[in-house]
Amino acid sequence: MPNVPFSSQELLKWSGAIFVTLLEAYVVYAIARKWDMRRLICAENGDASMSRFQLLLFTFAIGGGYFYLMLQKAAFPPIDVGALGLLGISSGTYAISKGIQASRDTNAAAQASATTNPPAVPTGGSLSSSAAAGAGGPTAPPRQP
């Protein structure tokens, strides 16, 4: 057995540590330089969303503290109910606000569609006769009133 400076367990630990560190370094680099972060807190219509900003704020405030404690104690710290409540309120508001926005957008789209494409008013027999003529079939006789 050759004499190696690292045991296989030690090598595995270092590989994991270096992999995670490289991944973290890439994420930081990508956020700073590569990924398009312009619309991070924007809604679908392009306006900045208050709910998204709030969710970002509390995720950093609570998540950052949680990860800090986890690294310090090398264990999962208990999560305070109040902090969970804050995240819950924020996420709930985000979800409800998305629902309201989606309902509003659907209504606006329906109204816009109704104004640009008014519903066709059927006129007695003209549709069926033109369709039959377009298909090359025998023309239907005009319907008598």
């Binding site: 973290e24 370094a25 994420v27 930081v28 956020i31 700073a32 972060m37 312009r38 619309r39 991070l40 807190i41 924007c42 392009g46 306006d47 900045a48 969303s49 208050m50 900003f53 970002l56 950093f60 950052g64 990860f67 800090y68 690294l71």
Partner: peptide, 25 residues
């Protein structure tokens, strides 16, 4: 630990410098 400091710092910097759009908030 450095990652946890750098990510909010980079995003905060981008918000402050206007790279992340805040218009209409």
């Amino acid at each position: 630990g450095a990652f946890l400091i750098l990510v909010p710092a980079v995003i905060g910097w981008q918000i402050l410098t206007g790279r992340i759009e805040m218009g209409g908030m």
